[in-house]
Nucleic acid binder design. Sequence first.
DNA 1: CGTTCAGTTGATACACGTCAATAGTGGTGG
DNA 2: CCACCACTATTGACGTGTATCAACTGAACG
Lengths: 237, 237
Amino acid sequence: MSYTDASSAPSLPQSPCVPDPRGSVLRSLFSGRSCHYRHKEHLFLEGDSCAGVFLITSGRVIVYTVTLNGQRQVQSFAGPGDLLGLNFSGLHTTSAEALGDVTADMMPRCVFDRVLQTSDGFRKAIFERIDQMMEAARNQNTLLGCKGALEKTATFLMDLDARFSNGGPSYVPIPMSRSDIADFLGLTLETVSRMLSRLKSQNVIDLPKANCFRILDRRGLYRIAGVEVERIRKCPL
Amino acid sequence: MSYTDASSAPSLPQSPCVPDPRGSVLRSLFSGRSCHYRHKEHLFLEGDSCAGVFLITSGRVIVYTVTLNGQRQVQSFAGPGDLLGLNFSGLHTTSAEALGDVTADMMPRCVFDRVLQTSDGFRKAIFERIDQMMEAARNQNTLLGCKGALEKTATFLMDLDARFSNGGPSYVPIPMSRSDIADFLGLTLETVSRMLSRLKSQNVIDLPKANCFRILDRRGLYRIAGVEVERIRKCPL
DNA sequence: CGTTCAGTTGATACACGTCAATAGTGGTGG
DNA sequence: CCACCACTATTGACGTGTATCAACTGAACG
């Protein structure tokens, strides 16, 4: 009923080295009320009525669903430029929680629907975003269905770097906990920790603290992640 | 870039006992050229340029992607009323292959775009379908990330029944191979076979032949699948 | 009546989960 | 500034679910 989820935050989906700043077009067309959230505050909960669509302007958001037996599946990690709560039924089908301070623009449903109807550019931008979200969901399915623990972890770091590094040699923050990562990758937090340690001991990444890292051997990481060689070509190192 | 995938065929996503005949509204608004495909014939391949959008009118289609190392992830099984190839970038990001005879209406991209712009009803129907697709992708993520082999298999049968049974006591066909099911559920074909045998020996399902089944103990199956009790209430038996 | 291919079933291996102990890390108060 | 606490991450030992490898069975077809 919504694609609030999996993909609102294309969950680090784009190929690395893509120049397009995420949501630039969309942001210029998106008119909403600015909202602020603190660490662990929810933007919305599964089952809430859906007041409007959120465009994240800063910070990170974790998007998840919970199963009957209390297991949590993290659908995506959203960042600046990502859409949340984009659904056409009335209720949110995921929960969204701030990881640290977050600001977002909230566009009421009625406004959203109207602009969608009247603005070709807006509609085009939304559909493009939906494409990205579906692509991200597909990739996540493949990751969960086909990949092993090390492969999953490497893919996660790769996407995190592609999405949130400034391109320079600086360290990339890891704003989510091991448990969050585990629930995203379909692993346990212990396994995530072990795989990170393994990548570190193999000198593929540098991990000076638990919450930030840097890629040391890009080709190595990409190979472990099972990514196409073409992508490696396009990237530095 | 497209949601040709995971969800074009909400992959048996809807809750059972929902009266709405899938795609009824959409079908009346959808004007396309009728196409026919035989068993194992492809509607399109990953990387093909995307000529238009397909609305399946009869038969079943398997939608999948292939990873670098040759593994296949089945994104969905599509049936009558499902949309395929709905993407706004130019290229298909999944492959779609007929399981037995298939008929579909193909609406060229340019027509699709125009109608989307001019018809409010069509746009609404498409967005509703996108909602369903995203929901299906989310559910699939949860299934792949959180569930065990027996749970996955039970969920699959449940969805298959909800989507393709006529509601009566007759047997539901299983048009895809064990290997197809395995690639959909992130298992091996051997494990799928074992889980089916288990459900059969527990008298939860009847499986007289490999390619059709019937639910004997609906509540039992739903409990194994990890589905909410409310849903069980709504259903016979 | 073979041949072929999909499915089933069995034996074994291994990846990852589980349980448990240890080590960091950040915050608060003396 | 150090001591203490709470919490998260790491590491280790062990168990188990599912993959892997392999043999067997059954159905479709010539």
